[in-house]
Amino acid sequence: MPIYHIFDADSFTLAAERYAAVLDLRQDYVQARPEAAVIFDFLQHHWPKLANSFDSPLIPSTNNTVERVIGRFDQHYQNFCGFESIADAQCYLAVFEKLYRFTPFSQDAQPSVRGKSPLQLAGYDTSQLPMTTITAGLSIVWPVQTQEAPLVPSL
Rank of each mutant, 00 (worst) to 15 (best):
Q147G: 00
R26M: 09
K49T: 07
A89L: 01
P60T: 15
T135W: 03
K116S: 02
K116A: 00
V38R: 10
D28W: 12
A16E: 09
R72E: 08
D55N: 08
D55I: 05
I86V: 03
D88E: 10
H5P: 05
A15L: 02
P118V: 00
E148T: 03
P111S: 01
F54G: 09
L25H: 09
V69R: 15
F73G: 01
V141E: 04
T146F: 04
P104T: 14
I70A: 15
T13K: 06
T13D: 05
Y100T: 12
V30E: 12
R33V: 09
Q27Y: 14
Y124Q: 06
A20N: 14
Q145F: 07
Q147P: 05
I59A: 01
T126D: 01
V30W: 12
W47D: 02
P2H: 13
D41N: 06
F80L: 12
Y124W: 11
S127G: 04
Q145N: 06
R101L: 14
N63Q: 13
Q90H: 11
L155F: 05
D8S: 02
L43D: 00
T126A: 06
S127L: 10
A109K: 09
P150F: 07
D41T: 07
T135I: 10
G71I: 12
A89M: 10
S117K: 09
P130I: 06
K116V: 01
T126M: 06
P130C: 00
S56L: 00
V113G: 11
A21F: 03
V141S: 08
G115S: 07
F54Y: 09
K116L: 05
L138M: 09
P118E: 01
T135G: 08
Q75T: 08
Y4V: 04
E97H: 15
A87R: 04
F54Q: 00
Q120F: 03
N79Y: 14
V38C: 08
P143S: 01
S154C: 03
Q128Y: 09
D88P: 04
H76A: 13
P150R: 11
I140K: 10
V141Q: 02
D108F: 15
F96I: 01
F42T: 05
L151W: 10
V152A: 04
H45K: 15
P150C: 13
L25F: 06
Q107C: 14
T62P: 01
M131Y: 01
N63T: 11
P104E: 13
H45W: 15
D41P: 00
S85I: 11
I39Y: 11
T132Y: 11
A9I: 06
A89N: 05
V66A: 14
A37W: 15
A15V: 02
Q120G: 05
R114N: 01
L99H: 09
D8V: 10
S112Y: 13
Q107V: 14
T103N: 09
